[in-house]
């Protein structure tokens, strides 16, 4: 059975399952990035988060990030799972696994993937605090997307 490598799920993320999608005999490194829910942001205490997504497009954009990585690192194998719904502090929001023959590429590619998620993947986070809640946008502190569609290279 082929399981998609680029998925949005409303269930807890199984880190090992994401790693298993990329592990292979010629990999010398598997770099795993795990994004978790942080309690304190700029002195404000988060109680819980809600993530929402435009699921079919988000999965396509995750796959596009995989393609961009393979363009730069042809031997890379990439899998990304992002969770949506209500998440508590320390819950896993995203898991990125990148396998490459040599470690430097795996580090670089997984860093690229998380930065790119924050630019182009239609997923939104709503923070819930003791005194209210708000959708969070613009984490990279850029306004919208000046060149039309966000392009590869914007973060490099």
């Amino acid at each position: 059975m082929t399981q998609s490598r680029f998925t949005i799920t409303d269930e807890a993320v199984d880190v090992t399952a994401v790693i298993d999608k990329v592990t292979h005999r010629n990999a010398g490194a598997v770099n795993t990035f795990i994004g978790t829910v942080r309690e304190m942001t700029k002195g404000k205490k988060t109680l819980y988060l809600k993530y929402d997504a435009y699921v079919p497009m988000a999965e396509k954009q995750l796959a596009r990030i995989g393609d961009e990585i393979v363009r730069d690192f042809p031997d890379a194998e990439v899998a990304i799972t992002h969770r949506i719904g209500e998440l508590d502090i320390s819950d896993i929001a995203v898991v990125i696994a990148v396998a490459t023959p040599h470690r430097a590429d795996a580090f670089e590619a997984s860093r690229f993937a998380i930065e790119r998620i924050k630019e182009i993947v239609p997923i939104w986070k709503k923070e819930h605090w003791e005194d209210g809640s708000s959708w969070i946008g613009d984490q990279r502190e850029t306004t919208a997307y000046p060149g039309g569609s966000p392009e590869k290279g914007d973060i490099e």
């Binding site: 994004g35 239609p122 997923i123 946008g137 613009d138 984490q139 919208a144 039309g148």
Partner: peptide, 21 residues
């Protein structure tokens, strides 16, 4: 793009600044 044509049957989404990850 802003000038992309839209016609019957299309789905058009408006995506606020994203905050995944």
């Amino acid at each position: 793009r802003a000038d992309t044509k839209v016609s019957d049957g299309d789905t058009v989404a408006f995506i606020p600044p994203v905050s995944g990850g």
